[in-house]
Amino acid sequence: MDYFIELLFSGLSRGAIYALIALGYTMVYGIIGLINFAHGEIYMIGAFTSFIIATILTILGFPGLAIILLAGLAAVIWSASYGYTIEKVAYKPLRHAPRLSALISAIGMSMFLQNYVLLAQTSDFLPFPQLVPDFDFMEPIAHIVGSSDMVILVTTTVVMICLTILIKYTKIGKAMRATSQDRTMAMLVGINVNRIISITFIIGSSLAAIGGMLVASHIGQINFYIGFIAGIKAFTAAVLGGIGSIPGAVLGSVVLGLTESFATGYVSSDYEDVFAFSLLVLILIFKPSGLLGKADTQKV
């Protein structure tokens, strides 16, 4: 039973990591129907920014909490400006082009950013400081769920609730939903669609930056390639949950995380990815729009 609980929490924290990235994928897809492949790189840039700021603040002798908040804030601002710029540079000019063009532009952007960080920073692995301290009150259960796992779980939950409130109950959220349903009609009723799309990119990128910082602090290392691997898994999770759906992204991530964790625990870690992707195939066969995705009815 203990073993089951240990694996359960391993899966949950893995799922929460995926979810922080998957939310960005799903939001952008929900609004403009584009799979933003550069999203993983935004996550990586967030991790690098917080790494640089945290290192500087540590040298300056700031207290732990201030370092997390300031490094997080810097990462959010920096990544958000990247997200905003990428949309303006790489996607906006292609908004009326065929979908494939925008997709290729996204892949190009992803490669560009990876190589840019590789050249501007380093190809080496860098040690990421442990930003979340080991809390004393967590010690009795530290062998099951550590402090940084807990912070990630709580952050993901809070973020998911905030996003749901934002989209369901605020004016911006309403405008987002309208843009998602019919962009032309939204424009006709006076919604500034370009602004809404920009806001979506900013929110998605901010989440990725927070995710980047927390995950890097959790595993203790970063390099220019982390965004690609994490991005692929998070993208899978978003599709699994139903791309375009916010609760779907979280559910999909948790299902994916748990599947991997239990596959490792009860079968073999050699087959971790086999199980994860078999599950994806099965779900897409029986529910092509994903767990919580809405079936897309085509107007004829």
Partner: peptide
């Protein structure tokens, strides 16, 4: 490259 190795550690 996996994000987390806690399952195998458990």
């Amino acid at each position: 490259g996996a994000v987390d190795y806690s399952a195998i550690v458990q």
